[in-house]
Design a protein around this nucleic acid. Structure first.
Lengths: 251, 251
DNA sequence: GTAATAGTGTCTTTCAGACACTATAAG
DNA sequence: CTTATAGTGTCTGAAAGACACTATTAC
């Protein structure tokens, strides 16, 4: 490093070219047994008419996570306790020089897990936000590098279900083991063995705790009432709930 | 979102306040059976005299990963094939508004795994870069929020050894099972059972492959010559090499 | 009654960890 | 010869997965 460079680096960082920092949010929920993603239809160029992740510039004095939560809240209209229950974590940052044709933008992507939420009301501030089925995405081109970000977010989500209790963030406060199994099946895209899953969930310390209650009715097509559970206090699962063998996909 | 805000967001992103984007590198290596971290002693305020992670501003038209690799190369003097063999991955981004007293800085931290490297030559461009033992860090205050970044990097490294073959990045091209065990013991901070580790490493598909060679001599205090192995072609380990039970630390 | 589901029992296989043992090489 | 290490054999316990079975409820 030359003395000049070191000088700039230490004393005049503003002399370096301008970079914009944004947050984008990969927000996932489960509707009707299908994984859905919150997307916004772009009204203006670039990528006019394309679907894009909700996101925007980080404001001065605003934390990265706070910016992501604000963007999520703005587009869903969610607030208060229901917003606070949404899990939000940092996913990764994307900064390929030409990812936005207007200027250099580094986006800090976040990943959100939400229980089934209503469609953002049309005509509100939310504009053109929609929950779209993830299964309907392939073939549809997203704006910027958002396809890549979504792919990374989905893989992270699948992986997080293995060793954290975050599956409980996709269901209500009280839920049955079958509902929880539905979350795993939907996110992983595999049917799971009901009996073994049931035993496994109850055997992992801190995953769920009993409420002592049961559902009011049995299933739509019959069957006994199911017991209701709440999320437990574990932050990591030991032992983990591993996905059925991906075999040599990893090689 | 107000119409004004939407206008700014779409048409004049430059109107948003300036944010600087940097990369920082948590570079790890193993020297003398101890985990070491590459640090730089700061010559100027803020945090003058403090140890800090190597890092700097992302240049125009430079990818985030490229910036991190450049910073690592500048401080270690490494280049060519030896530089290419260093594993580098994105860790996380840090953007608390006041993390740098001079201006708003968002840092995209990276994590690097390197085999034992020579101390950066004094008097070179590398300046005051040093490999410091991680065990000597507690109690020593680092610049900015680098303590937090290092902690996150160490946890990521420990976790990555479980389900990836990255332990092989800490040793040379050819290595013995005992050397590989040393990596795990050093990073995890636990002694491992030699016999069980040996069998486990050979049983995981794609972790290592035999060279057919053995070491020239036995151990310093006697013992048979060890067979030499190369890194295999696996990118993920199935089944994983799990750390000895952390018990309920996670709760 | 019929069909579907909640929840449990049990067996097999895989894998981690403990322990023991042998073979080889340095000094 | 002594001592330390490489590598293997074997047993135990934990846990995953396959399969079977009972009890309960909707219709």
């Amino acid at each position: 490093m030359s003395p000049e460079e070191r000088f700039l680096r230490e004393y005049d960082p503003g002399a370096y070219p301008r970079v914009a920092v944004t947050v984008d949010v990969v927000a996932l929920t489960i509707r009707d047994g299908e994984l859905h993603l919150l997307l916004i239809q772009r009204a203006e160029p670039p990528y006019q008419g394309f679907w894009a992740l909700p996101g925007g510039f980080v404001r001065p004095d605003e934390d990265l996570a706070a910016a992501a939560r604000r963007e999520f809240a703005e587009e869903t209209g969610l607030g208060g306790e229901r917003l606070r229950r949404v899990h939000l974590e940092q996913l990764a940052s994307y900064g390929t020089p030409d990812r936005d044709p207007r200027l250099r933008v580094v986006s800090v992507a976040h990943l959100a897990f939400a229980p089934d939420l209503p469609e953002p009301a049309a005509g509100s501030d939310a504009g053109d936000a929609r929950w779209l089925a993830v299964s309907a995405l392939p073939g549809r081109q997203l704006a910027f590098d958002h396809e890549r970000i979504v792919a990374d977010g989905l893989e992270r989500a699948r992986s997080k279900l293995e060793y954290t209790p975050l599956a409980t963030r996709f269901v209500g406060d009280e839920f049955t083991i079958a509902e929880l199994r539905g979350v795993y099946e939907t996110v992983w895209g595999h049917p799971l063995h009901a009996g073994n899953f049931h035993r496994k969930v109850l055997s992992v310390p801190g995953l769920v705790e009993s409420t002592g209650q049961t559902t009011e009715r049995g299933g739509a097509k019959g069957g006994p009432r199911a017991r209701l559970y709440r999320a437990g206090d574990a932050r990591l699962l030991h032992p983990a709930l591993l996905r059925p063998a991906r075999e040599e996909t990893a090689r």
